[in-house]
C-alpha cells in the first residue's frame, strides 16, 4: 500500500473503499434504500434464482444504485420462479415473477429507476414475506 499523502488521497481512498462497506451500511438502514428479496428455496434455485440474484448484485453496483439484495425462502409462487420482491423506500413492496436476467434488467431500468410498472407483476394483494 502506498502512503496516503494528501487529504485528497484519503478522500479518494475512502470513496473507493466505501463500496465494500455499502452492504453493511445499507443493512443498517434498510428503509432508506431499494430492497430486493430473491426467493431462493429449492424451486427458486432450480429455476435460476441464483443467477438472478448475482445479476442484481453486480448490475446494481455497476449502475450505481444503492440497494440491498437479500435472499429469502420460498414465497409460494413456485409456478413463477424465480420470484423477487422489490421495495422502493416509501412504497409498498411489489412481487415480480419469472425474473430472468432480461426481466431483471427491465425491472432495474423501468421500475427501480423510473417507478414504471413492468409485465410480470404477480397480481396479489400485498402479503409481505417473512411475516
Amino acid at each position: 500500500m502506498t502512503k496516503i499523502r494528501t487529504l485528497d488521497d484519503l478522500r479518494n481512498l475512502r470513496t473507493n473503499l466505501r463500496q465494500g462497506m455499502d452492504m453493511r451500511e445499507n443493512a443498517d438502514n434498510p428503509d432508506s434504500v431499494v430492497q430486493i428479496k430473491v426467493a431462493m428455496a429449492t424451486c427458486g434455485i432450480a429455476s435460476g434464482a441464483k443467477k438472478t440474484m448475482d445479476f442484481f448484485v453486480t448490475e446494481l453496483r455497476k449502475r450505481q444504485i444503492t440497494a440491498l439484495v437479500t435472499q429469502t425462502g420460498c414465497m409460494g409462487y413456485c409456478y413463477a420462479e424465480p420470484t423477487i420482491e422489490v421495495t422502493i423506500p416509501g412504497k409498498t413492496p411489489v412481487v415480480f415473477g419469472n425474473v430472468t436476467e432480461n426481466v431483471a434488467d427491465e425491472i432495474i431500468e423501468k421500475y427501480i429507476k423510473k417507478g414504471e410498472l413492468v409485465d410480470g407483476i404477480i397480481p396479489q394483494t400485498f402479503n409481505p414475506i417473512d411475516k
Binding site: L7, L10, R11, L13, R14, L17, G20, M21, D28
Partner: peptide, 25 residues
C-alpha cells in the same frame, strides 16, 4: 461489531481519519 478492527481500510471506509483531515485543512 461493524468493522474489522485489524483492517484500517474498513475504518477509513467508515470515515476514519477524515475528521483529522478536515481540521488540518
Amino acid at each position: 461489531g461493524f468493522i474489522n478492527p485489524e483492517n484500517i481500510e474498513e475504518s477509513i471506509a467508515r470515515d476514519g481519519y477524515s475528521a483529522l483531515g478536515t481540521i488540518l485543512q
